[in-house]
């Protein structure tokens, strides 16, 4: 093996290893390796810092950078899990799922599937935690996914029941058990208001936040997370809207998607035509259908 590769593997293993509770580099790693002797084998000490201390600068920098990015992406998750548990969640998730992308944008891409395998971070409000995670990840994707060209007159003229309608890549649809979008908006507007520099104000905000999360009642909702004029929006959907969009996204023809949407629907048959016309007007005006 190349010496360069060998060195980089060893340094990366040290840097990406979790810090101690005091945010220092552990003397010994989880696998028993001594960081003190490991650092000494490849890092020169100087007159002020030992090999260990020099390596520790990078170890700390790695975690601080990742934590700050992750926290910025999942403020709602932090609120529903609680700040202390969230610290552990970040540490364990990023240890199990280190970044595999050149951009930190994708840091949370594996969070939902990871959480499903880590019930200790879901309990006692499993569904709320999962819902918030899904919403916040959908927001990240809706923010910068592609916006494809709209259907032109020729495309529109040829649409029939067999047509496959393509939706904008930025559109995400979610089925949720809690109205987490209301919670997230409330949390955001609270953290963006008031005097951030005052300790009293921040303690009061924290109390409000905890109460708000505790008071949140379950509600079965359907949500579109989408983009308009480059801002991200949350749009509540009806069950039929959701089923229709879901069918279109999975490649069903227009005719079949409509059929799927009305399975067990409470919308009376005589109203369905008008209902379909309305939602398609709305979605089309939002620019959701693309070539």
């Amino acid at each position: 093996m190349s010496e360069l590769l060998e060195l980089q593997r060893r340094v990366a293993a040290a840097i990406m290893h979790p810090l101690t509770r005091n945010e220092t580099m552990p003397r010994r790693r989880r696998d028993g390796v001594s960081n003190t002797s490991e650092a000494a084998t490849y890092i020169k000490p100087n007159d002020r810092l030992s090999s260990f201390e020099r390596l520790e600068i990078y170890n700390r920098q790695y975690w601080f950078r990742l934590y700050s990015c992750f926290e910025e992406d999942f403020p709602g998750l932090k609120a529903v899990v609680g700040a202390q548990k969230f610290e552990l969640l970040m540490r364990d998730y990023l240890t199990d799922c280190p970044s595999q992308s050149f951009t930190l944008r994708n840091l949370g891409s594996r969070l939902e599937s990871w959480l499903l395998e880590h019930p200790e971070y879901l309990d006692p409000r499993r569904q709320l935690v999962l819902d918030m995670c899904r919403l916040e990840w959908a927001h990240i994707e809706a923010f910068d996914e592609a916006e494809n060209p709209l259907l032109d007159a020729d495309d529109l003229a040829t649409i029939d029941e067999h047509s496959l309608l393509h939706l904008q890549p930025y559109l995400r649809i979610l089925e949720l058990q809690y109205p987490v979008e209301d919670l997230l908006i409330a949390l955001r507007s609270e953290s963006g208001s008031g005097d951030a520099s005052s300790n009293n104000a921040s303690a009061a905000r924290k109390t409000r936040r905890v109460r708000r999360v505790a008071a949140l009642e379950p509600e079965h909702i359907f949500l579109a997370v989408h983009r308009h004029e480059n801002s991200v929006y949350y749009k509540r959907l009806d069950r039929e809207d959701y089923l229709l969009l879901k069918a279109l996204l999975s490649g069903a023809s227009l005719g079949n998607a409509i059929e799927t949407a009305f399975v067990d629907s409470v919308i009376p048959e005589e109203d369905r035509g008008r209902w379909l016309q309305q939602i398609f007007t709305s979605w089309s005006a939002l620019g959701w259908f693309t070539r």
Binding site: E72, F143, Y233
Partner: peptide, 29 residues
Amino acid sequence: GCKAGDNGCKGKNSCKGKGGCATDGSKHP
């Protein structure tokens, strides 16, 4: 919250997740 470095705040998608937060109040457009 960036913590130091020539890439302190870099390599991080600027403004992701902050492109305005709005919700939809009504069920039927």
